[in-house]
Design a binder for these strands. Structure first.
Lengths: 268, 268
DNA sequence: CGGATAGTTGACTACCCTCAAGGTATGTGG
DNA sequence: CCACATACCTTGAGGGTAGTCAACTATCCG
């Protein structure tokens, strides 16, 4: 059991950030026992379908997105390991977005009725799921502010900062670098820009030595400058956890180069 | 008790759209017994504060918003009677947005621990609150798509459509008109535009006879054209309710001019 | 009748988009 | 090993949507 949980970042995150006890965590972990592998760019959830399963992303990157009738796409969430792909599906009769992988990915599909039953039986699980939903909400609201009121440059920098923190939390930042295996086109669909413009902004950030890129790796060279260029404040990620349950692992003022992920630490 | 509930659109909405029974509805209604009146533009929730109360908007208009350090403002939600102003506050330790009234308003502040207790004791209340959160989520995601991928014209039209439907649900549409008591500046902060541009777009919609405006009243003259100009589809509002519990009161294809609000009907 | 708030208009600007072409990296098959 | 295809990144030129700045008007209200 412990061995399983070690590679279940979803449970690890809940363990670190909510008040769930071992019983609940084990129950959730058990629900994740069915693991499936997908290749890059496969559709996990079709838009408009009635959800029968909820998807936990255990490995790889994915996204939630919406398509307009003429093909314009907006990615409403970038998903990283440990994320719930479609938490709304728990409460909603018919989905209004799609989910697709961006890279090869490992996913645990959870039976919706089973998870609902678990939430009905354990108030603390319902609470933890509510917390996950609230964080989703906060992230969407922050992106709203980016899309509506920040410049392309600010927005690109903001995304880089956000990914840095989120990946640090799950132990996927090494030194000052992380792997960013998605295309500029996909970044553009997150930011509401064109890939051409994303390219130009990234070039400008590189030429000013705020970041470096090689292969699929992004290195943050000057965190303070990047943070300032973005107007980034990590409050909305609610790293303090449900009701302050989690450690304040990363501090209010994100340290320049992050210590090893506290989530990964915590279940050794 | 019934008399009270008649003017509690929050409870009325839950009654129509979720599977809550009389016991739970009454418990919630009782929590709303403390009602406070605010004038226009008063701050209900300060950004960054630890939430001790959750706010139910019973009358008037309000908004959730975020301020960037240089004063730019993004309104992340327009709130109408029956809305929960700060549902995230139930799960989150420190808020990351502010709430303010836009018009004179009646608000019921609910003790956060009391509501949390109620949710812990009644799984169906937790479920209903989860549903409210999921709808918030869907609305934020849809606005993301608007901000990122729709033109100003589409976005303005979209907002007009959305308000039409949401107000129809609570019985605040008369014929083809509703009251829109907010300034173009505030609309601009919802849409991520400037008030000058909002003004021009509204003029264009008026000159093409899609809408009319006089005083604080907005009249939809040509619903189909407006809907098409917006690319509006009401799916994301989840009018079918929690797990399809509610009536499909407005139909998938929004009728041109809406029948009397089904919520208001239902508790006569 | 001021004074404040909100709506309107015009001239100019700029950020980002569009279109199109060229460059680079990787993988495949002959 | 090379030819070729594909996917992605890069670069340039030109244009349009929406922003900025500023003045003017309308309306309401004390």
């Amino acid at each position: 059991v412990a061995a399983t949980r070690l590679n279940n970042l979803f449970v690890a995150r809940l363990r670190a950030l909510t008040s769930l006890g071992e019983v609940e965590l084990t129950a959730l972990d058990t629900l994740c026992s069915d693991r499936r592998h997908y290749r890059a760019r496969s559709e996990l959830v079709v838009d408009g379908s009635h959800p029968e399963r909820v998807h936990v992303l255990l490995e790889g990157c994915a996204c939630r997105y919406k398509l307009l009738s003429d093909g314009r796409r907006q990615i409403t969430a970038l998903l990283i390991p440990g994320d719930l792909c479609d938490i709304d599906a728990l409460h909603v009769w018919r989905g209004d977005f799609a989910v697709a992988t961006l890279t090869p990915a490992t996913v645990a599909p959870i039976s919706r009725p089973q998870l609902r039953r678990l939430a009905a039986e354990h108030a603390r699980i319902a609470d933890a799921l509510g917390w996950l939903g609230a964080v989703e909400n906060a992230m969407l609201a922050e992106r709203n502010a980016c899309l509506g009121r920040r410049s392309a440059r600010e927005h690109v920098a903001h995304l880089i900062c956000e990914l840095f923190v989120r990946l640090a939390v799950i132990g996927r930042v090494e030194g000052d670098s992380y792997s960013l295996p998605i295309t500029q086109e996909e970044i553009a669909d997150v930011l509401g820009l064109t890939s051409v413009h994303v390219n130009r902004v990234l070039q400008s950030l590189r030429s000013e030595r705020l970041i470096e890129q090689q292969g699929g790796t992004l290195k943050v060279c000057d965190w303070q400058a990047l943070r300032k260029a973005a107007g980034f404040r990590p409050d909305y990620l609610h790293l303090e956890g449900l009701d302050g349950a989690g450690v304040d692992g990363l501090g209010a003022a994100m340290p320049p180069f992050v210590r090893p992920a506290f989530v990964a630490d915590r279940h050794v």
